[in-house]
Design a protein around this nucleic acid. Structure first.
Length: 927
RNA sequence: GCCGGAGUGGUGGAAUGGUAUACACGAGGGACUUAAAAUCCCUUGCCUUCACGGGCUUACGGGUUCGAGUCCCGUCUCCGGUACCA
């Protein structure tokens, strides 16, 4: 083959790999295992743009490199194929989402294959496939049939709980979750209960449970959303408003695992940013719960949660969430109207308004007083919407001298702001939350330090039964139902209004066909339209489906043993593959998917079904590739467009121009006229050199900005190997960086030069068996050393530069020797696998065998130099260079430098005070 | 506000505390060509000088060091996350 023709060799090898299942991974091997995982995509209708493959390319390089290093590598791909877009499309067109999803997946597979990824496609999974979601449902049933025992600190089967109920009732059982939802009973009472009563008693213990919950209701999507699906008060998908609403919902008790999810982070090799985000999301806080009796009431009391119990003597009022259950009871007749008005006003305001308006202080006095438990002083009870019903106890003790929010509130309503520490300053200006100093005006803790005071107060409150130390988490349980069609049916049916899990032997519960993908007339979810959809022909099924993150919470386990229909993953396969060694994906999943997947893993671990501590040992977030948008400037009120350099002479409007008709920011004017009908007669004011120059902005790639670049076009023009190299060459993997198609010609040129080392003048293969020279060996081994170092630290951009430098040097040396070029093919093969596979075969190896070869061995001895060039500096400024034998000692070098005319030439007549010689590096003369 | 991350040529970026600007794009000049594409060669941080050379430069201001893009302190800007969380 003469010239480098990527279009030919890439198709050839892709077909070969497919036909020979080159990358099929075995579940039994003597080799050490390595599991490289990409976050699987949702197959959208738009297909891939150049930003998507970035992480896949990087993980494929690691995969191929690890194979050459002798590992048995698992590198699978699949599809997160349930989801809203397909369903929205179905609503509009009536097309079954399964159909469009299938088409989209086929496009994805075709595109991914054209990039030469070495996936083991025999392990592909799709979350919407019943043979897959059978096991998603199975895990749900396990959650449904488990509770969390705080004494053993793990999940246990519900049967163990009910056995204890039968033996000794609910006494002494410590379970994760809200005890307020549960009732106490004796063993005798339990035995007297009907089945329905028993199930009701057990429900609040389950790890998958149903309960009336405040949810994020999104009317635009017709469903509830979890916290991580809501951004800035609107839905992440579609940007529809979201409001708080009380609804019966299925939830998963992720809060039971909050502490373990927090602790586990320490052992993970993850970016600090992601770990920190998870820590913040879990939001552990250590404080105390304190009870304030209500003045004039025998029974009513208000529990507050505080992290600063030491400031309790400064608490001059309490603030309750407007939704607090005692509000009605507390409100005095005189304040009734004001309170009702305030609550109504709060309800009218959407979540978004409340957030946008965080600075405004609002609140209302209930008229009631509580008693501060440490000194029995009466404190006013107020309502304000800055207190959240869902966090802590829904009530706070306000300490205006120590908390800025309380300070603003007190200032606004003219409440007292007593000083409680001798270290507090400028209390009339703002709150001072200092923990320094000693307490004043603080009863039993006067004169104590922060630590002493906290301990003393908690002991005091515990003794009186009015408080206790308490740990709180910001994280809420995860809402698990969606009122949508295109998701896994929740395997629950109702008998006489009580929820039952369907039998495991009846799984999967297959998604039924329906006539339209909309809610029913009565407002039930779409599944309400299914005809005769009843368990055992008589019991109605749950109508909500699982959220998008259900299937993605365990897919990495299924890849280990994807065709097992007896178990979610075979025991042996799970033991062999263990957990994921390298997980590559976007940072946007930091608090959603990555937290849920860890939660499910810990749960499965508790049940003895998996064998590691954490699912993903190392995580890398690839950065996003941003689009580079181009603009044209239309003179207002005309169809005239003015070039960037002259636009300031006119009143213009910037309009997007498709980047595919712009080259180096120069607009192809004819293509622009043809691009859209309204531009057919456009006129142009050009630069003086006759071109139309466009404006530029870097922003996210999206259709509406006409800045999307498709990999297909670039592969057609430069080849997949060039695209792979170029995406890596753009910059550090984790960084955000703009796409600029122009640069790809650079790596294209590199590949051609590489090819010419084997095929001089683009002629036939011309490789010699001559022994390599020391200079050539040095180039090669420098490359082996650095390529290896770079891959180990995921610095692929520098690897590509390294290859370019290496090829430039070998070209200059006119090197066409097998001894140098054969190892070089191996070095390049993880990056440009098609080219490498072709050359490997030309070099006489079996077709398609490069991935089973061994990585070349680095040998230090070839790098040893006889002489070294030292830069000579005066006071750190380099002035000259001088050669020394590599073996020269620092003393010899110093003597030689001082003996030379170096100081005379550059020393400005000063004498040398000191000479620093760094062996092999440089010489610095201090004068 | 709080928590992360980042600021180096026209652009993407490189640099174990040791010759800043590698590699590539773009730009300028040239060769080949009737011309274009492709390819190849040269120049390309800024200032100064006819030139040799010299000076300056890693967001800004300090510091540590023989020596700082790199370490420390302070300031500014940008990006991401998060936010009445008591």
């Amino acid at each position: 083959m003469p010239a480098y023709r990527p279009e030919e060799i890439e198709k050839k090898w892709q077909a070969h790999w497919k036909e020979h299942s080159t990358f099929k991974a075995q579940n039994h091997s003597d080799k050490p295992k390595y599991y490289v995982l990409d976050m699987f995509p949702y197959p959208s209708g738009a297909g891939l743009h150049v930003g998507h493959p970035l992480g896949y390319i990087a993980s494929d390089i690691v995969t191929r490199y690890k194979r050459l290093q002798g590992f048995n590598v698992l590198h699978p791909m699949g599809f997160d194929s349930f989801g809203l877009p397909a369903e929205q499309y179905a609503i509009q067109t009536g097309q079954h989402p399964a159909l469009t999803t299938e088409q989209n997946i086929n496009t994805y597979i075709q595109q991914l294959s054209s990039l030469g990824f070495s996936y083991d496609w025999s392990r592909e999974v799709r979350t919407s496939d019943p043979s897959y979601y059978k096991w998603t449902q199975w895990i749900f049933l396990k959650l449904f049939n488990s509770w969390y025992n705080l004494d053993t600190d793990r999940a246990e089967p519900l049967t163990e709980l009910t056995a204890r109920f039968a033996e000794s009732g609910s006494a002494g059982i410590r379970a994760a979750g809200d005890d307020e939802e549960r009732h106490d009973f004796t063993a005798g009472q339990w035995q007297m209960m009907s089945e329905k009563q028993k199930l009701a008693a057990v429900l609040p213990y389950r790890l998958a449970y149903q309960q009336d919950t405040y949810v994020n209701w999104c009317a635009g999507l017709g469903t509830v959303l979890s916290n991580d699906e809501v951004k800035d008060g609107v839905s992440e998908r579609g940007g529809f408003p979201v409001e708080r609403r009380l609804m019966p919902q299925w939830s998963l008790r992720i809060t039971a695992y909050a502490d373990r999810l927090l602790q586990g982070l320490d052992q993970l090799d993850w970016p600090d940013a992601v770990k920190e985000m998870q820590r913040n999301w879990i939001g552990k806080s250590i404080g105390a719960e304190v009870t304030f009796p209500v003045q004039g009431s025998e029974t009513a009391q208000i529990k507050v949660y505080t992290t600063r119990v030491d400031t309790i003597y400064g608490a001059t009022f309490l603030v309750l969430a407007p939704e607090h259950e005692l509000v009605d009871q507390l409100t005095t007749p005189e304040q009734r109207a004001a309170v009702d008005e305030y609550i109504a006003a709060t309800k009218r305001r959407s979540e978004r308004d409340r957030m946008a308006d965080a600075k405004t202080v609002s609140g209302v006095f209930t008229g009631a007083y509580a008693l501060n438990p440490v000194n029995n002083e009466p404190v006013q009870i107020w309502l304000a919407d800055y207190v959240l019903a869902g966090y802590g106890t829904g009530a706070v003790m306000a300490v205006p001298s120590g908390d800025q929010r309380d300070w603003l509130f007190a200032t606004h309503f003219g409440l007292p702001i007593p000083v409680i520490s001798d270290a507090q300053k400028d209390i009339d200006q703002q709150a001072d939350p200092t923990k320094e100093g000693r307490y004043i005006n603080s009863g039993i803790i006067n004169g104590l330090t922060y630590k002493e005071a906290t301990a003393k107060l908690i002991a005091f409150l515990e003794e009186k039964g009015l408080g206790k130390g308490k740990v709180n988490f910001r994280q809420r349980d995860a809402i698990f139902g969606r009122q949508r069609y295109w998701g896994e049916p929740i395997p629950i049916y109702y008998k006489d209004g009580t929820a039952y899990g369907i039998a495991e032997s009846d799984l999967p519960l297959v998604l039924p066909e329906i006539d339209e993908y909309k809610p029913t007339e009565t407002g039930e979810p779409p599944l309400g339209r299914a005809q005769d959809w009843l368990y055992k022909g008589k019991y109605p099924y749950e109508l909500s489906t699982m959220p998008g993150w259900a299937g993605s919470s365990w897919y990495y386990l299924r890849y280990m043993d994807p065709h097992n229909d007896a178990r979610f993953v075979g025991e042996e396969a799970e033991k062999y593959w263990g957990n994921v060694d390298l997980y590559m994906g976007g940072a946007e999943h930091a608090t959603g998917h990555l937290l849920y997947a860890r939660f499910w893993y810990l749960f499965l671990k508790d049940l003895g079904l998996v064998s590691c501590n954490e699912p993903f040992q190392k995580l890398i977030n690839q950065g996003m590739i941003l689009g580079r948008s181009n603009f044209v400037y239309r003179i207002n009120g005309t169809n005239q467009f003015v070039t960037l350099g002259k636009k300031d002479q006119y009143e213009t409007t910037a309009l997007y121009a498709d980047v595919n008709i712009v080259d180096n920011d120069v607009l192809n004017v004819e293509a622009f006229k043809k691009w859209r009908e309204e531009y057919a007669n456009a006129e142009f004011i050009l630069e003086d050199n006759g071109t139309y120059v466009c404006g530029v902005e870097v922003e996210k790639m999206s259709k509406s900005k006409y800045n999307v670049v498709s990999p297909d076009v670039l592969i057609g023009r430069y080849g997949a190997d060039a695209l792979r190299l170029y995406e890596m060459f753009l910059g550090p993997l984790e960084q955000y960086k703009p796409w600029n198609t122009n640069g790809i010609s650079g790596v294209g040129g590199f590949l051609k030069k590489f090819w010419r080392l084997f095929h001089p003048e683009d002629g036939p293969l011309a490789i010699t068996d001559e022994p390599a020279t020391p200079a050539e060996l040095k180039v090669l081994h420098k490359a082996i050393q650095k390529a290896q170092e770079d891959i180990e630290k995921f610095s692929f951009n520098t690897s590509v530069s390294l290859f370019m430098i290496t090829v430039n040097e070998l070209t200059a040396l006119k090197c066409h020797k097998r001894a140098i070029l054969e190892p070089l093919v191996l070095l390049v093969s993880p990056f440009a696998p098609h080219l490498a596979e072709e050359l490997w075969q030309e070099l006489g190896h079996e077709a398609g065998s490069i991935s089973t070869a061994r990585y070349p061995e680095f040998r230090e001895e070839f790098l040893v130099e006889e002489s070294v060039t030292y830069p000579l500096a005066i006071n750190g400024k380099v002035r000259e260079q001088m050669q020394f034998a590599a073996a020269a000692t620092p003393a010899e070098i110093e003597a030689a430098v001082l003996a030379s005319d170096f100081l005379a030439k550059h020393g400005e007549g000063k004498a040398a005070k000191k000479v620093i010689v760094v062996k092999g590096r440089m010489v610095n003369v201090v004068v």
